[in-house]
Computed example of a mutant assay.
Amino acid sequence: MKDPRIKDVGDVRTEHLFDLVVDLDDPLPIGPRVLFGAAGGTFDGPRLRGEVVRGGGDWAQFRKDGTMTLDVRLTLRTHDGALVHLSYGGRWVIPADLRDAVADPRRRHEVDPAGYYFRTNPLFETGSPDYAWLNDVVGVGSGYLVDGGIAYRVAEVR
């Protein structure tokens, strides 16, 4: 029996926000976690673009079932100098048959992203009046591997 309090609020819609590429330092194992430090990168979209500031990263944890849990904090610098804090969690589910290829730094970017599940939930924080609208944005991202790092297609949930 359907609960009568449930309302139709419409479908969740998204709008492309930007594409993000994060160049990564060599991983640092820290107990059960691995730090993938951000060495730089870029982002580009219809309403904002710029660079990834060196120094953030992903404090990832690999579970025995092949899933990586993400704990990412990055600083973005827009093309006009504004700073934006970007944080997100997420899940990267890597099937057993792809784990060796994904672990190989020479081949990992060649793995077809259709073979794994890699989703994030970006949130933003800035003091810039020009980008204050980001403070109220909830995002969703689809991740994939690139040569030297990781990339995401990020959308704003409307």
Rank of each mutant, 00 (worst) to 15 (best):
A101R: 13
G139Q: 04
N135S: 06
T120P: 09
W92I: 05
L145G: 05
P122K: 08
G149Q: 09
R108T: 11
L134M: 00
L123K: 09
V93G: 06
E110G: 03
I94K: 11
F118S: 08
G141R: 04
G127Q: 10
L123N: 12
W133S: 09
P122F: 05
G139L: 05
P113T: 13
A103P: 05
R106M: 03
A103Q: 01
D104S: 07
L145D: 14
D104W: 01
F118D: 07
W92L: 04
L145M: 15
L98P: 02
G127N: 14
R99A: 06
A96G: 02
V140L: 11
V146K: 15
L98T: 03
P95I: 11
R99L: 03
L145A: 15
E110R: 11
R106D: 10
F124Y: 14
D104E: 03
I150F: 03
D100L: 12
N121Y: 00
R153N: 13
S142E: 13
G149C: 11
L145I: 10
W133C: 01
R99H: 01
P95A: 09
V138P: 00
D104V: 09
G141V: 04
E110S: 09
T120R: 01
V140W: 05
G148H: 03
Y131N: 10
V111M: 13
G143Y: 09
D136L: 13
P122E: 00
H109W: 11
P105F: 08
Y144V: 06
V111N: 09
G143C: 13
V111L: 11
Y117F: 14
G115A: 12
Y117A: 11
R119Q: 07
G115W: 09
V146R: 11
D147L: 08
F124D: 06
N121M: 10
